[in-house]
Design a protein around this nucleic acid. Structure first.
Lengths: 177, 177
DNA sequence: CGATAATAGCTGCCCAGGCAGTAATGATTT
DNA sequence: AAATCATTACTGCCTGGGCAGCTATTATCG
């Protein structure tokens, strides 16, 4: 049985992790987007270039899984970046299903100018944080993500899903009397 | 000058707050959505009912600002909830521009069955956390949000930014009973 | 070897959110 | 009181993500 960090009788959604994280995400977007918009980029475009720069990923698939982005949507973003000459798609003979993404010179220059702006914003967002607080926040988020990840993955096996879903709506709720 | 939590020369996007928060948000959605989907609801529908239950908001506007949700999108979600008889729109004479949202009996029953499931998921996500860690994560996220909020607000170009102050929003709602 | 499954990427379709504009009501100013 | 501005909720339109299906390639197994 899990720890009772939250209790049903006292739980209020405005204090829940879901809300806090959603709000942080939304605010983070609003904070960063002006940087990119002013230069004709979108946030997701920056993310992809940034990941390529850092060597985190070279295939669309890797970005999909690690950044949790839809495969189809990603294809279109890469199309945009390729059209603007920022990234290139390379087919390797090793596995011809895979596409290797590479930053062009223009792409490298671009990301090199964007990263400092992002770092500045991050530092500004954390300016009231002590070094310990900042690293603790990072550590706790990583820990949370790790746990959530395992929980999500555990639920993917085929057909173990209990409810047939739909149709029942709220009637489903009062069954346990 | 802001603290140098991140440095340009060593910054890697996979450790950045933006990524960690985005990932947490995405994973949180994936964790929670099965609860609602199996019962014919969406996450945002739950959120609205939950906020109404907790008395956090009674007007669409309040939900928009506090939950950072688009006004137009919210109208449609409320339409869905109203069609299913979960919430009602009430026009008060006090200010006929505003709509007061109320959970119907069905809505109250519904949210009463959903909240424990959410709480359970949250506790599960935090089961490896000590009490201190959990509250520290909450505190740091609130602190971060507060800082980000002020940063975003400061950039509104049009209005005089010296605090529109939004005279009486939550208290306003209560006295009209 | 051939057949089937699995993987990577792409395309089409649908839906929800972002944005701008509108109508109704209320507040403020003159 | 009239005029102007502000606020609230709603609507239409568009973009972008989620999902399912498709193709090409590779892996697995009989």
């Amino acid at each position: 049985m899990p720890k009772q960090h939250y209790d049903v009788s006292t739980y209020r959604s405005q204090m829940g992790l879901g809300y806090l994280v959603k709000r942080a995400h939304s605010l983070m977007l609003d904070t960063m987007e002006p940087i990119f918009e002013a230069r004709g980029f979108t946030f997701i475009q920056y993310v992809i270039m940034s990941w390529l720069r850092d060597g985190i990923a070279v295939n669309p698939k890797e970005i999909c899984t690690q950044y949790r982005h839809d495969s189809g949507a990603l294809t279109r973003v890469i199309d945009q970046l390729a059209e603007r000459g920022l990234v290139e798609r390379v087919r390797r003979d090793r596995d011809r299903r895979k596409v290797e993404l590479q930053l062009t010179e223009l792409g490298q220059e671009t990301i090199k100018t964007l990263v400092p702006l992002v770092v500045e914003k991050l530092n500004l967002a954390l300016e009231d944080f002590s070094g310990e607080e900042a690293s603790e926040l990072q550590r706790l988020l990583i820990k949370l993500n790790s746990k959530l990840q395992s929980g999500v993955e555990a639920k993917t096996p085929s057909g173990t899903e209990s409810g047939p879903a739909e149709a029942g709506s709220a009637a489903d709720a009062r069954e346990s009397a």
